[in-house]
Simulated scan of single mutants.
Amino acid sequence: MSSRTAEHARQPSQRLLLKRFAMALGSYALVILLVLLAYALGLYQADGPALALNLLLLLLSQLVFLCLYLSGINQRLCDPSLTEAQVLVALAWLSLFLWHVPTARGALLGIYPLVMLFGAFQLRPWVFARCAALAWLLFAGMNGWDAYHLQLDSAPQALLQTAVLGVLLLWLSLFAVYVQDLRRRMMRRRSALLAHRDTLRGMMQQLEELAATDELTGLYNRRHFLQLAERALLTLQPGQRLGLALIDLDHFKRINDQHGHAAGDRALQAFAAVARVCLRDHDILARYGGEEFVLLLPECDAERLTACCERLRLAFSQAEPLEQPVQGLSLSAGMALLGPGDDLDRALHAADQALYRAKHEGRNRCLAAWTAGHVD
């Protein structure tokens, strides 16, 4: 089997069709046993070569179907399952077989419903009815021919057999209508369930985002930041470090007192907007509480962390909050570095101590935990 053929066979839809084809082959095998039994009992009114030719035609037809499945050509057809084609081939071959067993035809007429059941779950009702009508016409034609030309005395028996087959096929046609209607309802329910699942999945995602996000700034909240930071620490490789900074907006209480809480909210939002522009996509920034923010930089060193915090400080000093203009915006930052095995709480405490020093030394500056003075 070539790689392309194997690829077609591995497709879920093709695997299902191949399983159905294997079931059809199993049914053929059982019918062939009946053919051989009829031949052994002397009921098959043809010689051995004719029987061999009949079986050879069946084998060739099934090889054609198998090649269509394995090559994927069936996927380009209107009916990739080839159900109607398989039913028609089976009806033709079965009729050829029953033509040679006129005396046992009534005992074997039940094979026609067996063939039709193969299409009950796949064929559209009108297609199924068309195949059922063909099966009945084939059987009725054979019985009529034999009753008229060969065994006139068996005409009532042939008529009864034809009527019995007609009743069976009519019942199967009604059953196929019911099955297809049931299948359509199940498909509609499945579509509805999938739609509900997608809706629930979207709602769950929104809830997760709400649980992880600060409503005012749109940044991560403290709880989610701590989860992300712990996860980043666990994945650190030897030699890698994380940059950590606690950032506090200067004189925030004065902004609220002089300009109102709306101005304070605009200042917080202005910082979040500035940070989105200054930071990389994989940098993590969260609102830590009140006017305090926390920043985590992956694959960082002292120089990069310092440059990033200074860039944020300068950009924020030039920000102009919408609707509520506030003069003299500034921030202070305390910085720390983490390596593999470091404790996050201890690093946050070190950054907080550096931030305290920055506030104590006059604000509007970035100080590092690894130094005793200003990073500049």
Rank of each mutant, 00 (worst) to 15 (best):
Asn221Ile: 01
Leu228Val: 11
His374Lys: 05
Leu331Ala: 06
Ala6Cys: 08
Ala195Asp: 13
Gln318Asn: 12
Phe225Val: 02
Leu242Thr: 03
Glu299Arg: 12
Leu165Gln: 05
Phe175Thr: 15
Gln205Ser: 01
Ala192Ile: 09
Leu296Ser: 08
Arg346Val: 13
Val35Ala: 13
Met203His: 06
Arg222Phe: 07
His149Ser: 07
Ala50Asp: 13
Leu174Gly: 15
Val326Gly: 00
Gln62Glu: 15
Arg313Asn: 09
Ala229Lys: 01
Val31His: 10
Ser330Pro: 11
Glu209Met: 09
Leu123Val: 09
Ala29Val: 11
Arg20Leu: 13
Ser317Arg: 04
Leu295Gln: 02
Leu355His: 02
Glu299Thr: 08
Ala212Ser: 14
Ala147Asn: 03
Arg363Ser: 07
Pro125Ser: 04
Ala347Lys: 03
Gln318Met: 09
Thr199His: 14
Arg222Trp: 05
Tyr148Ile: 07
Gly289Asp: 03
Leu53Arg: 14
Tyr28Ala: 13
Arg363Ala: 08
Thr213Val: 03
Ala9Asp: 12
Asn256Gln: 12
Leu312Gln: 03
Glu299Lys: 10
Val294Trp: 02
Gln86Phe: 05
Phe21Gln: 00
Leu216Met: 06
Thr5Phe: 10
Ala85Cys: 11
Leu165Glu: 04
Thr235Phe: 15
Leu109Arg: 03
Ala129Val: 05
Thr213Glu: 03
Leu57Glu: 15
Ala262Gln: 14
His251Trp: 11
Thr371Ser: 15
Ala211Leu: 04
Val101Leu: 04
Leu234His: 10
Leu55Cys: 01
Glu291Gly: 04
Phe65Lys: 01
Arg313His: 07
Thr199Asn: 09
Leu244Asn: 03
Gln353Asp: 08
Val164Glu: 15
Leu59Trp: 12
Asn221Ser: 06
Ile73Asn: 06
Trp145Glu: 00
His282Ala: 14
Thr162Ala: 10
Asp250Ala: 05
Leu94Asp: 04
Glu209His: 09
Phe252Thr: 00
Ala163Trp: 14
Ala212His: 06
Ala85Trp: 11
Thr306Ser: 09
Val179Ala: 10
Ala6Glu: 14
Leu329Cys: 07
Phe97Thr: 01
Leu41Asn: 10
Leu160Gln: 09
Tyr288Leu: 06
Pro238Leu: 02
Val164Ile: 14
Ala22Cys: 08
Tyr220Lys: 04
Gly42Met: 05
Leu30Glu: 11
Thr213Cys: 05
Ala85Glu: 06
Ala40Lys: 10
Ala24Tyr: 07
Leu152Gln: 15
Glu7Lys: 10
Leu137Trp: 09
Arg280Ile: 03
Gly339Trp: 12
Leu312His: 01
Arg190Leu: 15
Val294Ser: 00
Pro80Gln: 00
Leu314Gln: 15
Asn364Arg: 12
Asp79Phe: 12
Leu285Val: 10
Pro325Ala: 05
Gln75Cys: 11
Ala29Ile: 09
Ala275Lys: 03
Asp352Pro: 09
Cys366Ile: 05
Gln258Arg: 13
